[in-house]
Amino acid sequence: MATETKVLDSWVLAEFATPEALVDATQKMREKGYTGMDTYSPYPLHGGSEALGLPPSRVPFIALGGALTGLTVALSMQTFMNTIDYPLNVGGRPLLSLPAWVPITFELAVLMAAFGIFFGLLGLSRLPQPYHRVFESDEFRSASTHGYWLSVPPTETAKSEDIMDQLKSLGATHVTVVTGENE
């Protein structure tokens, strides 16, 4: 393996004392042109998505897709089963009793939308992912309890050392480099 690839595989991790400092530093680093950064915090950061410059989440569209699937499947299932394949005359009521189809249609739409949200969330986040390079740092374990971290992958022009210096000047309390497998 060439040395250069190895450098690209290592990320700079910086810890900040407060969520505000982290959001602020992320914003400034992004203005400097760094990409592929990520923040890590025990709860969602206010203004965190904006600081990272993330596009609107696609979860709502997946949910809508799920809901429409449930709706279509439920309506066609009930119509096919009770009207076409096995017509059942109950007290002379119409075979195509649409009002009676409503409850199951609603429930299936909700169920499929919920599956869409859940698996959409996991899929977009690429979870479950038991290993990630940030876990190489032991201090990083605070990210889920009380720490606010920023990861910056080095670019062609900026080496890890430069990034570390810049993060320190932005108020990072702790800076480290992790090396791990590429995704």
Partner: peptide, 14 residues
């Protein structure tokens, strides 16, 4: 599931 509090994940999670 390997949750690491990533800002990109929180973005979808919220």
């Amino acid at each position: 599931l390997g949750w690491r509090g990533s800002g990109r994940h929180w973005h979808n999670y919220k």
